[in-house]
């Protein structure tokens, strides 16, 4: 099955949320006119990231992290036989240049840097190829996407998209889901919003209680929604059903007991099966 489209219609945040919730394994390419990125996922976790101008090789990642000097990187590049990232990592650890923790942290920071840069891409094609894995020589580090999604949402600058996602702040409330909050990095503002979540409080009321403007509250709620920490509900006490029944509805309600309705639906089922 395909998973492709344009970031204009389905944002980076939504894409990462989908990959995470569906626990997908595969490669995602993203392409704009000037840039491209390649992300690999394993069971919903990001394991490798690169762009057209940042290839995601270990030596470059360690250089960016300040663990290797430029001179050392050049020396590595000058070697007649190019080592794979895994072999280079082992060599560097054995020779005491870096530790295993340095490598893991540098790879993680590099991936985060790449993936955060993608949140500013508002247009561009994406395509997910299920089952595709990075080449064996690459070092992969699994990264939980919940925090990435939250942080990415904090970086959204376009109000328009947020309004599309959360149009009526005064008509909906929030409910905290079962997802454990201890595993995610929430900001003080996030906590302030969470502390006001109640079925009777609309999002607009939560914003008012925290002196937040619409853009701020939308950004926070959108991030928590995408990370699956909260869900939208109708506020308590709001009339959810129509106040008035139409004539046809009144007629039907008067005439039909549950037994009669069941019998009618069973007749419909039997007939449709024979169509």
């Amino acid at each position: 099955m395909a998973l492709q489209g344009n970031l204009r219609d389905f944002s980076t945040t939504q894409l990462l949320n989908l990959v995470s919730l569906a626990k997908k394994t595969g490669a995602m390419t993203l392409e704009t006119d000037d840039n491209s990125a390649l992300l690999y996922f394993r069971e919903g976790k990001l394991i490798h990231a690169s762009t057209n101008n940042r290839a995601g090789r270990l030596a470059d990642m360690l250089l960016e992290a300040g663990k290797l000097a430029e001179k050392q990187v050049k020396a590595i590049e000058r070697q007649p036989k190019q080592l794979s990232d895994k072999a280079l990592g082992i060599d560097l650890i054995r020779s005491g240049v870096v530790t295993q923790q340095d490598i893991i942290k540098s790879v993680k920071d590099f991936m985060l840097d790449v993936v955060y840069s993608l949140f500013s891409w508002t247009e561009g094609l994406f395509n997910f190829n299920p089952g595709v894995k990075p080449s064996n020589d690459r070092i992969t580090v699994p990264l939980n996407l919940d925090n990435v999604i939250l942080e990415g949402s904090r970086r959204i600058q376009e109000n328009e998209r947020l309004v599309d996602e959360l149009p009526h702040l005064d008509r909906v409330s929030l409910k905290v889901t079962d997802k454990p909050l201890r595993d995610v990095k929430l900001t003080p503002d996030d906590w302030r919003v969470i502390s006001h979540i109640h079925p009777r409080n609309t999002i607009a009321q939560i914003a008012q209680a925290n002196s937040m403007d619409e853009f701020q509250i939308r950004k926070i709620v959108y991030g928590m929604l995408q990370a699956g920490l909260v869900e939208i509900i109708k506020p308590e006490g709001v009339q959810t059903q129509k106040k008035f029944m139409s004539r046809a509805e009144k007629k039907l309600a008067k005439k039909q007991t549950p037994t009669m309705k069941r019998s009618m639906v069973e007749r419909l089922i039997n007939r449709i099966k024979r169509v």
Binding site: M1, A2, L3, F10, Q14, N17, L18, L21, A22
Partner: peptide
């Protein structure tokens, strides 16, 4: 086509 499972999440 997007799969029904992906559409459910989307």
């Amino acid at each position: 086509a997007w799969s029904p499972e992906d559409l459910r999440i989307a």
